[in-house]
Amino acid sequence: MVILIGNQKGGAGKSTLTLLLANFLTLVKRRNVLVIDMDHQQSVAQKYEKSKITDNVPPYEVMAADLADYPSMHELLNATSTNQVVLIDLPGKLDDDGLIKIFQSAHWVICPFAYDELSFESTIFFSVVLQKLNPRAMITYIPNRVKANVRYELRRDVDEQLANFGQVTEPLPDRIDFQRITTLHTPPSLDPVVGPVFEQLYHDYIQPL
């Protein structure tokens, strides 16, 4: 299963969400996971390299890659076990034709966003492009780093618009603990925050496959 984590808007929390989901799938669900870091900053790959300095065995592999690498990688992914979950942390821009094949290969797309006008517009644009390139892909929107003072009316209106493309989950609040996630560990204080969201998504999308 190929899962993309992306949005047109930089700073939406793609890399953090990639780490959270990879940790959940491997440490909680004991699934075989491969992470492909295509984000320009490659923060997930950097954390992975740092983790290898310790004596701990990483629960999953992280590969740093460019968009140009994907055509050959896609053939390799097709030959792997159907039990493997591949998470791809996408770049923050859609202005590269190399993204076309990646979008077309996705089974499921997770799109983090914030409740503000710029993030909403970027999320809608990302969704329209994705739907044109791969209308079969499932889309899940995760409100991320949500402040406590977000107006209910704004949240309701945004959720209604995004529901035209896919599912909107419960929001993840803005917590300092998100900065302490590694490829080996998710702080226990985040379990009650992200656990219910990921459990539901696992039950709906991954477990049936």
Rank of each mutant, 00 (worst) to 15 (best):
I5C: 08
G6P: 05
G6D: 01
N7R: 07
Q8P: 06
K9A: 04
K9H: 09
G11A: 01
A12F: 01
A12C: 05
A12R: 07
G13N: 10
G13W: 15
K14Y: 01
S15W: 00
T16L: 00
T16C: 02
T18Y: 04
T18H: 06
L19T: 08
L19Y: 14
L19K: 11
L20Y: 09
L21C: 03
N23Y: 05
N23H: 06
F24I: 03
F24L: 09
T26P: 05
L27Q: 10
L27I: 09
V28A: 02
V28W: 00
R30G: 06
N32W: 09
V33N: 11
V35E: 08
V35W: 07
I36N: 07
M38Y: 03
H40C: 00
H40Y: 06
H40T: 04
Q42V: 11
S43D: 02
V44M: 02
V44G: 02
A45G: 06
A45F: 07
A45E: 01
Q46W: 04
Q46T: 09
Q46E: 09
Q46Y: 10
Q46F: 08
Y48L: 03
E49K: 13
E49Q: 13
E49W: 08
K50A: 05
K50D: 07
K50C: 05
S51W: 06
K52A: 04
K52C: 05
K52Q: 12
I53M: 05
I53E: 07
I53V: 04
T54G: 02
T54S: 07
D55Q: 14
D55M: 14
D55K: 14
D55V: 05
N56R: 11
N56C: 03
V57H: 15
P58C: 08
P58F: 03
E61N: 13
V62K: 01
V62F: 02
M63W: 06
M63T: 11
A64M: 11
D66Q: 15
L67R: 12
L67G: 15
L67T: 12
A68W: 09
D69L: 14
D69F: 08
D69P: 12
Y70E: 06
Y70D: 04
P71D: 01
S72Y: 04
S72W: 06
M73N: 11
M73I: 14
H74I: 04
H74C: 03
H74N: 11
H74W: 10
H74S: 12
E75L: 12
L76H: 12
L76V: 12
L77K: 10
L77E: 13
N78Y: 04
T80A: 03
T82G: 01
T82L: 11
T82Y: 13
Q84R: 14
V85P: 14
V85S: 10
V85T: 12
V86G: 15
V86P: 15
V86Q: 15
L87A: 08
L87C: 03
I88T: 12
I88K: 05
I88P: 11
L90T: 14
L90Q: 10
L90S: 11
P91C: 04
